[in-house]
Design a protein around this nucleic acid. Structure first.
Lengths: 197, 197
DNA sequence: ACATCGGCTTAACCCGGGTTAATGCGGCAT
DNA sequence: ATGCCGCATTAACCCGGGTTAAGCCGATGT
């Protein structure tokens, strides 16, 4: 049986991975209804999660109740809280299912163990972190160099599929504007397209 | 002789590193005058840089000439362009010395070679990337959840030393506001402190 | 000593997005 | 079928930071 996480790891490794059975036996599958919380900020988190089907949002919830979305995780992608694995205690954010979602969960310690003893696994981990760092860097760049409207236009161009799957409210929280603000932007952009066409 | 990069790597490795001589022999030292460019966006970049003394800024320069600062690299820190090592071609940003700066440069291929054949080096690379990812994540979070004034207040609290070393113009480019905008913020914050005191 | 240049400061005006609030709509539960 | 709740939409007003422009100051070069 081919779990999503196994093929994901294989695809990243510089050489064939051994010990997949050891990992496979530690995988736990879980289902989450749309809207349900997978883990909350502060929860102790010892595992890595792979989304098999569905969609997850990772979000910071501020003291005043404001919610800002760090990222969306669609099927086939992995997520975890980095700081939780650096001795900082719990997760740094909430994870919430946006659709009926199936998740594979496996202990981070297993992965760390494999990487500490096997060069192919260590190489896989490096690739994983490189890709993650590149994504975070791209997002930092967007926040630094683009205004809200340009951020929306960019996302609309590069990832229309995501926009179609989520609410405007969540999209606003991801882009760093309020729902009302985003609605204005969307209207403006639509007008641009219909009038130009 | 103990190069800065060697002690840096040692401090991150989960186990003692071997083959340090191989690396040491490939280190090139370079001096850069204040204001001089270390590399430009688009330049092919095959090396990793460690700042020994001085201060470097990494910045995106947009088509319209606007400059936004991705990060400041003080002595003892490492920097490189991640995307340049992922087959994307050149560096994604400029690197400019802000002070008289001495830099150790070493081929990334050497590091990759070591990591591909030695678990301790692979572990070091993992730690390095984890720390980097955590920093980028924290900055993303600041942009997402804080307004410009709050970003300035946070930096003022957590890293006053940096503020003292750079111009207000560069600080503005780092915080994502214009120089005029930052100047207003600084004045406001100073007033808060003197009137409360 | 002088001119130059870049960064800092301040002022005036502009504008995009924040805030609040009202309305409408669609999905869901009972 | 009905009531409810959360999201989308729209309007009115507010405000922080953007823009432009002017004056100032200190460092640098001649």
């Amino acid at each position: 049986m081919s779990f999503a996480s196994l093929t994901l790891f294989q695809s990243l490794a510089p050489a064939p991975l051994t010990g997949l059975e050891a990992l496979e036996s530690r995988i736990i599958m879980r289902s989450h209804a749309a809207g349900s919380m997978i883990f909350a900020a502060g929860d102790p988190l010892t595992s890595v999660q792979v989304v098999r089907t569905g969609l997850v949002k990772l979000c910071y919830v501020l003291a005043d109740g404001d919610e800002w979305i760090k990222s969306f995780i669609p099927e086939g992608q992995l997520f975890t809280s980095i700081t939780a694995h650096m001795g900082e205690g719990g997760a740094g954010f909430d994870a919430v299912a946006l659709e009926p979602t199936e998740i594979e969960s496996l202990p981070f310690s297993v992965l760390r163990e494999l990487a500490a003893n096997d060069l192919a696994w260590a190489g896989m981990l490096t690739e994983l972190l490189l890709a993650y760092a590149a994504r975070k860097e791209a997002r930092e760049r967007d926040f630094l160099t683009l205004k809200p409207e340009a951020r929306y236009r960019t996302l609309r161009r590069t990832n229309p599929g995501l926009i179609a799957r989520i609410t405007q409210k969540d999209l606003a929280a991801y882009l760093g504007v309020t729902p009302v603000g985003l609605n204005r932007i969307v209207k403006r952009v639509e007008n641009d397209f219909t009038s130009t066409a």
